[in-house]
Design a protein around this nucleic acid. Structure first.
Length: 541
RNA sequence: GAGCCGGUAGCUCAGUCGGUAGAGCAUUCGACUUUUAAUCGAAUGGUCGAGGGUUCGAGUCCCUCCCGGCUCACCA
């Protein structure tokens, strides 16, 4: 019944999400046939999130990639599926993050479940609720389709109760699997079940004195007081420790697919074994590589190296970030500012091609192997394309010293009068980003030469002439003549040296646009300010 | 110690079912021009880390090795 036996391999689009969708389809088929009465639940894909911090670029990557597997699964099988974004908000607060207010208040709640820690921002019922809301807003901003799940809700509502009792039944087997992987000191206190302290609410990391699978309780001793407690594992009175928690969740919910970073390879293996002990089947999944910063170091939230989602989106549209995540998930990639332009143009090339492929065969393998088909969630079309590549816009911004989108648009219109922000929304978006990228990365790297005495006099003269010009409607040809006249008047020989001076002193580059046209678009007053600043800057040196 | 990934042009990288090695940038030359420029054309540049195997044919598949990077082994 497996699709892999019926569908010819050559029809499978050659894109990694389809390879993954195949694995997922096989997994679903297997659990359906393995179950006595059949198991026709929708395919369940899960992504995990730890709400001790804010969502970051890795969170985006995992949800985006999982969504693409889901999209491929739908295209491949036509069968229903769900994507569960699971927040482990019952996890204990281990240390106070350094980017939040009220840190001394939070200090008192170390060891408490995140869902019981007050919100330091004061906007939600708990710290976890705050971060969960941030996660949802973040995911919604990208238009992801998902169901949100709170670990605390699942535990307290009893949705995990049956699975938790099952854990007690096979408790010793689970221990036997986990203990050999731990160091001797950790082994002494390890328990897969973590009861919550009935009075303090703290997540207790102590050895269990006794397990009662029939009553569904554990007995343990409070190391602080010596007091002995008998705690039910059900109803949110206890939670599971990390790897066992993952396994229990896979088992309880019947997760069919979950991807994870390569740092979790051992955890996936171990959780899979525990899941099997419980009587379930570990989900299918993909191990992705981690991102590196500009120096090839692993990106971590605490170090703050690499690049945040916000930073990327300042310099390029979200589709380009999707393109980055789509490319070779199993390969380590540098995630830094300088990859943005190339990635953006990669996306644009794919989006362009997708339009053609859509027209030729809207359900063909070629279109479905196109990254843009995934990134655009199947909504391929000219609105997602741009007639001008991003790299060209950056060049243009640099040449024209474009510090506002309007300047850039002036040049673009001269290039093609039919193009406007209204007719080409993607281009409008790219223009804004190109200006930002230029301002932050290109312009600071420019070197502005100091003018010679002769040039200084000519520049002052030009500024004076422009002041006289102010008020009139800017005319490129008249301004060009004016610039030309000033150059001749000051005896530049050849005259091209005068223009070279303008570019090197005012724009910090060897070449530039036709200067009259530049002044008309850039603004007469703005150009005067540019000259004044250059003369002043030189005087201070 | 265990595991993952990589090594292709000066740089960053792509290379689909095994079929004459590609792109961008950089460099050089040319076209366009009141001076310059978004652009276009061309040239230069490779022992595909090394060795062996399979094959009519290997950057691509298999094995061994070398080099580099990362991850895990405390927590999640």
């Amino acid at each position: 019944m497996s699709e892999s036996q019926t569908a010819p391999v050559s029809d499978l689009p050659r894109a990694w999400p389809f390879e993954e969708a195949r694995k997922l389809a096989d997994h679903v088929a297997q659990r359906d046939t393995a179950s006595a009465g059949g198991d026709a639940r929708p395919a369940l894909l899960e992504t995990g999130y730890g709400p001790s911090g804010l969502p970051h670029i890795g969170t985006f990557g995992e949800v985006a990639r999982t969504s693409w597997v889901r999209q491929a699964y739908t295209a491949l099988t036509g069968r229903p599926s769900r994507l569960l974004a699971f927040s482990d908000d019952m996890d204990a607060l281990r240390k106070v993050p350094d980017n939040v207010p009220q840190r001394e208040m939070l200090e008192k709640f170390i060891g408490q479940p995140l869902s019981r820690v007050p919100d330091p921002f004061g906007t939600h019922d708990s710290f976890a609720a705050h971060n969960n809301a941030r996660l949802r807003a973040f995911l919604d901003g990208f238009g992801f389709e998902y169901e949100f799940a709170s670990s605390t809700d699942y535990y307290t509502s009893g949705r995990f109760d049956a699975a938790l009792k099952r854990v007690l039944e096979v408790h010793d087997e689970i221990l036997a699997v986990i203990l050999p992987t731990l160091g001797p000191d950790r082994r002494a206190t390890y328990s897969p079940v973590l009861p919550l302290h009935p009075r303090t609410g703290e997540v207790m990391q102590v050895k269990m004195d006794a397990i009662d699978p029939v009553a569904g309780t554990v007995r343990w001793t409070d190391p602080a007081s010596g007091e002995v407690f008998e705690t039910p594992v059900t109803g949110g009175h206890a939670k599971m420790q990390w790897k066992a928690d993952w396994a229990m969740r896979w088992y309880a919910l019947g997760v069919d697919y979950e991807m994870s970073g390569k740092d979790l390879i051992d955890s996936v293996r171990l959780s899979g074994r525990i899941c099997k002990i419980l009587g379930g089947t570990a989900p299918a999944g993909l191990t992705y590589e981690l991102f590196l910063d500009d120096k090839g170091q692993k990106i971590s939230k605490s170090k703050g190296n690499g690049l945040s989602v916000e930073e990327w989106l300042r310099y390029a549209p979200p589709e380009s970030l999707g393109q980055f995540m789509f490319n070779q998930p199993q390969r380590a990639k540098r995630l830094y500012f300088d990859v943005i332009p190339k990635t953006a143009d990669d996306y644009l090339a794919h989006a362009e091609k997708a339009c053609t492929q859509q027209a030729q065969n809207p359900t063909g393998a070629e279109l479905r192997a196109n990254p843009a088909w995934f990134i655009l969630k199947g909504q391929v079309g000219p609105q997602a394309c741009s007639p001008v590549p991003f790299g060209m816009l950056l060049n243009l911004a640099s040449v024209a010293n474009a510090d506002t989108p309007e300047v850039l648009w002036g040049f673009i219109r001269r290039y093609d009068a039919a193009v406007s922000p209204e007719t080409h929304p993607m281009l409008a978006c790219l223009v804004k980003h190109a200006v930002a990228y230029y301002a932050d990365f290109v312009r600071p790297a420019k070197t502005f030469r100091a003018p010679t005495d002769m040039e200084r006099a000519a520049l002052a003269d030009l500024a004076e002439c422009l002041r006289g010009y102010e008020g009139d409607a800017p005319d490129a040809a008249a301004l060009q003549n004016l610039v030309f006249e000033v150059g001749k008047r000051h005896g530049f020989e050849p005259l091209r040296a005068w223009f070279g001076c303008l570019y090197e002193v005012l724009l910090g580059q060897k070449e530039g646009p036709r200067f009259g046209g530049f002044v008309a678009l850039y603004g007469v007053g703005e150009t005067i300010a540019l000259i004044d600043a250059a003369l002043l800057r030189d005087r201070q040196d």
